[in-house]
Amino acid sequence: MSSLTQLQTGDSLKEIQLSPVSRIALIKYAGASGDFNPIHTIDEEATKASLPGIIAHGMWTMGNLAKLFTEYYEEGFVKDYSIRFKGMVFLNDVITLKASLKDKEDNQLRFDVQAVNQQGKDVIKGEVVYQLY
């Protein structure tokens, strides 16, 4: 484990590639989060909503993306985390999580963060401000 304090502007955290999105993963997220909107788990409901298939909860992707920072918990915490949902995530999509340091001010590290699908398209994109102790 490296330290966030050593990062220079432009440096990236180690990317994480998720395993292909599965129905069971979305069922688990529905149960754990309490978001039982059926377009995330049931094919017919997704079709009824004019979607080509079930889509991941946006918050599932946002939740996943934050794990890039988890291992640094002794150094600080995620103070601000804001994202825009840019594209839908479908079954079997392969999502890659990325963060790179945009700037450093006093004890605050500002990262660009994004989750990208197998076509290289952003599905969510935003910013994390990490507060160092």
Binding site: N37, I39, A49, G58, M59, M62, Y73, F77, V78, K79, D80, Y81, S82, I83, R84, F85, G126
Partner: peptide, 17 residues
């Protein structure tokens, strides 16, 4: 409604974990 809504943006701000 619980259908037909699109989640556009989301943010969190923390004072501590």
């Amino acid at each position: 409604p619980n259908i037909g809504l699109i989640h556009g943006e989301q943010s969190f701000h923390y004072e501590r974990p």
